[in-house]
Design a protein around this nucleic acid. Sequence first.
DNA 1: ATGGCGAGAGGATCTCGA
Length: 261
Amino acid sequence: MKVATWNVNSVRIRLEQVTQWLQDNPIDVLCLQETKVVNENFPRSSFTDLGYHTYVFGQKSYNGVALVSRSPLSDVSMGFGAILPEATVGDLDEQKRVITGVVDGIRIVNLYVPNGSAIDSDKYIYKLGWLKVLREYLQVLLQQSNSLLMCGDFNIALEDIDIHDPKNRATQVMATDVEREALQNVLSLGLADVFRKFTPEGGNFSWWDYRTGAFRRNAGWRIDHHYTTPDLYERSLSCTIDTTPRKLVQPSDHAPVIIEF
DNA sequence: ATGGCGAGAGGATCTCGA
């Protein structure tokens, strides 16, 4: 089974590229982020025509996540509020960033972690608070399942080798110690970075800024991840970044990352 | 030091992303 995560930066603008990629790659579950479309306007038929089921949690203009699966998913839910009490979640589900479902006994959690904008901004505080609630959310799901895959756009580079140039990273959003600790605190529930099981060296990235020719210079960041429980970590056969779609005209700034079991 | 690019909303030029 193959599961991919891909921040497509608007599913409608990228529809042709995404559906073509699905036809070129035998993916069982595609986890999309930044769909930027309300549920009614999600281009479902383009995926159902290819034999996929779609589960969407969208909003206007910003954010939005979706699961696109060859097999029907069970126990699908949207947002933290489906799992956690209202008092814990607060208004975090106003931004559509969380969707989950089960296939072949694997609980898949698809996330679009807040970017954080700039250090000490309100959005940075929001990001850190969001990650705290994420930990509680996973804690509940892990009580129900020992086989969990958490993937998505985390907007955090966990190690210096995940950044093309880490020298200013202490003051850069996505790379601060505080953000890394917040993510490590989530991973301490028993999740591990599958990409690093197969690829210990740096220079492998999943996002390149549209500006300054970042992709041509491979000046990227690895911020899109697959984290799993130990059984899936053992069962994983590969975890790769497909840079092919990033080379197309009018691409997403992220590349898909694929895990195989 | 700043902006570079791209998308959405709306109908010029903003906000937001990373």
